[in-house]
Design a protein around this nucleic acid. Sequence first.
DNA 1: AGAAGGACCAGTGGTCCGTA
DNA 2: AGAAGGACCAGTGGTCCGTA
Lengths: 193, 193
Amino acid sequence: MDDMNGHGNGGGGRLLSERQREHPFIVTEPGEVARGKKNGLDYLFHLYEQCRDFLIQVQTIAKEHGEKCPTKVTNQVFRFAKKAGASYINKPKMRHYVHCYALHCLDEEASNALRRVFKERGENVGAWRHACYKPLVTIAAGQGWDIDAIFNSHPRLSIWYVPTKLRQLCHTERNNATASSSASGGGVDHLPY
Amino acid sequence: MDDMNGHGNGGGGRLLSERQREHPFIVTEPGEVARGKKNGLDYLFHLYEQCRDFLIQVQTIAKEHGEKCPTKVTNQVFRFAKKAGASYINKPKMRHYVHCYALHCLDEEASNALRRVFKERGENVGAWRHACYKPLVTIAAGQGWDIDAIFNSHPRLSIWYVPTKLRQLCHTERNNATASSSASGGGVDHLPY
DNA sequence: AGAAGGACCAGTGGTCCGTA
DNA sequence: AGAAGGACCAGTGGTCCGTA
């Protein structure tokens, strides 16, 4: 019933009628297996890879049938995953942590370092999740602030919608950067003279 | 009020309260202006170019505001066009003739020849519209039947959704071609031996 | 308290069918 | 009859908030 050793909820002797929610995530180091009724972050990221596999299956079927072919993980893909027995995958969860997965894809070293720091400090998942935004905004700053282009140019990330909050942070920070560079004579904004 | 000389509905002395529907299309040769209360096919294709302009405006605004940026002519673009005063543009009409515009984009010579033949024969717009499917299916046959790739690789066509009926025709015809090549020993289908 | 996810909602793609 | 387009509908992207 489990997806990987030591991950996911144990099916154990539990009756189907009393199936529980997934165990909550805790901040784990890379390679670390969560103990007790918890799931680790490697498992979280593995769920994104599973969604990608389901998308590829949906795409293959769509092409065979001459139907329009999704390029993103859509409602259709979540429905397919559920039908295929992956009841632990759902849209609100996957959307909630997309930017964390993005950091893992775009700068695995930075992502790993952040995990170690937040585990060290005993921070909860919400705090770690929140901290994933800032390094992404920094990456965007170095790429002309185009977070859509950054997502689309990465093969495993391009199938995910850019989260609204990440988009807003990039936009706000770009305006701040432009205003300060303009004030100091940088002149990256329009009508610089 | 008119969009181009000799095209669109005349505003004339008509009151705003009694604004009429657009004049119906008739089959015209390239460069020919429709006479009487009719619109020609150059005007039809011009509407697609106008939609493209409106999309580009919507995209520019979206990027300025750090919002998600449409890549296709969506409801949002039709709403924008209407708000900008292009009341003669609407979704059902544009969707109805997309494949005709596609032929115009992909093989203007073939499109022009078809217009001349159907004008010569005195056919109505519906007959011409129907006849636009077949040359497109032939083009798709020469490109691995991937009508989505054909649309997406053309800069002016890529902003339009592939019409359902065109997709279905390509799918059906691909299966027919595969079956006959299989029967004659071609073996393009899966499990050919 | 912190977190997982059912379920809702505004606005979409798609096109039918009452209209002229 | 042939054709233009208002308006509807099933299923979407997005995420809130009742739940555990």
